[in-house]
Measured scan of single mutants.
Amino acid sequence: MKGKVVSYLAAKKYGFIQGDDGESYFLHFSELLDKKDEGKLVKGSMVHFDPTPTPKGLAAKAISLPLE
């Protein structure tokens, strides 16, 4: 699924993505496929991810940034 980063707290390594389906997904650095892309996780960045339901809500897994 595609989505847009709505927040990312680099110090805490987490944030949120708004998916194309309108839902909010929890984003964690550990799910970023290329850790070098962390600096690109800023508000408004477009990402691809696997939407995954968890006991705490919806989460983004296997997060990647589109090729530039």
Rank of each mutant, 00 (worst) to 15 (best):
V47W: 04
K43W: 10
K35M: 08
V42F: 10
I63P: 02
I63A: 05
H48C: 14
L32T: 02
Q18C: 13
K61D: 02
E31C: 07
S7D: 07
G39Y: 14
G15M: 02
G22D: 06
D21C: 04
V42C: 11
K13Q: 07
G39S: 14
K56V: 07
K4N: 07
H28P: 05
E31N: 11
L32V: 04
D37K: 07
E38I: 08
P55C: 09
F16D: 02
V42Q: 11
H48P: 00
S24C: 15
L41A: 02
A10T: 11
K4I: 14
L58N: 08
S64T: 12
L27N: 00
K61R: 12
D20S: 10
H28Y: 07
K43Q: 09
A11T: 12
G19Y: 02
V42T: 11
V47K: 00
S45R: 15
L32S: 00
I17G: 00
L65E: 03
L33Y: 05
P51G: 09
L27F: 15
F26H: 04
I63M: 03
D20Q: 10
L9S: 15
V6I: 14
P51C: 05
G44R: 03
P53G: 09
K12H: 09
A10N: 08
K12I: 06
E31F: 10
P66K: 12
T54I: 04
E23P: 03
G19Q: 00
V5F: 02
K13A: 05
K2F: 13
G15C: 03
V47A: 05
I63Y: 01
S7H: 11
G3P: 00
L32G: 01
E23L: 15
K36C: 12
T52Q: 13
K35R: 09
S24P: 06
S30Q: 08
V5M: 04
G3A: 02
S7K: 14
H48S: 13
K40P: 02
L41Q: 00
K56D: 07
P51F: 08
H28K: 07
D50M: 15
G44D: 06
G3Y: 01
A11I: 11
M1P: 03
T54N: 07
F16H: 04
L33V: 13
L33N: 07
K40T: 04
S30M: 10
Y8H: 02
E68H: 12
T54Q: 06
E68C: 12
K36F: 08
Q18S: 09
L65Q: 04
G19P: 01
A11M: 10
G3C: 03
A10C: 12
D37S: 09
D20C: 14
F49K: 01
A62Y: 11
K12M: 10
A59P: 01
K12S: 09
F49Y: 05
D21G: 04
H48D: 07
G39N: 12
Q18R: 14
G22Q: 05
G3M: 01
P55N: 09
S7F: 15
G22F: 05
L33A: 07
I17A: 04
L32R: 00
S45M: 15
K56Y: 11
A11W: 12
T52C: 13
E68Y: 12
K35W: 09
M1S: 06
Y14P: 00
K43I: 10
